[in-house]
């Protein structure tokens, strides 16, 4: 043991180093969330937390399970690819509890939002100058919104 003679200061240094390492490991284990590093340099549990946020839009699949008649009307018309909640707004609460009245969209503002004439819109998209077209008569007097073409009148 002659090589450890007068080496007490080295042992003390090693002890300090060891204690420091242990404290570091303990603090790190307490402070760093357990899922940190699960997928990368971030908290893996955050992904599940974000995936658990509540829905507001139910999705047209949910609407069609009950309103299959309207889905059928819609499928044959110009609005076939317009999803229910595009006009009716977010209705996840109505889908979860059908007794909640979803209300009806206001035709006066709804139709023109898409169909008011503007040279900025794509040429092929059907557009009308609402005042000239109907003189203030609400759109749904003539057009059925779920299938807006007017069969007898020949108008779109």
């Amino acid at each position: 043991m002659s090589i450890f003679r007068d080496a007490g200061h080295l042992f003390r240094l090693a002890g300090v180093y060891l204690a420091g390492t242990l404290i570091f490991l303990v603090v790190r284990a307490v402070v760093v969330p357990h899922s940190f590093g699960q997928y990368g340099h971030y908290r893996g549990a955050a992904i599940a937390e974000i995936a658990d946020r509540p829905l507001h839009f139910a999705g047209h699949q949910a609407c069609e399970t009950c309103h299959s008649d309207i889905a059928q009307t819609k499928a044959g018309g110009m609005h076939a690819h317009v999803n229910c909640e595009a006009c009716h707004g977010p209705l996840a609460n109505h889908a979860a509890d059908p007794s909640i009245d979803p209300g009806k969209p206001d035709v006066a503002t709804l139709c023109v939002r898409c169909h008011a004439v503007s040279a900025a819109r794509p040429r092929a998209f059907p557009q009308v100058d609402a005042d000239q077209h109907s003189g203030g008569v609400p759109c749904n007097t003539c057009h059925q919104p779920h299938s807006p073409a007017i069969a007898a009148g020949g108008s779109k």
């Binding site: 507001h56 839009f57 999705g59 047209h60 690819h81 999803n83 909640e85 595009a86 977010p90 898409c114």
Partner: peptide, 9 residues
């Protein structure tokens, strides 16, 4: 939600 609500696809 944006794709669900987009009327023109």
């Amino acid at each position: 939600a944006c794709c669900e609500a987009c009327p023109t696809g």
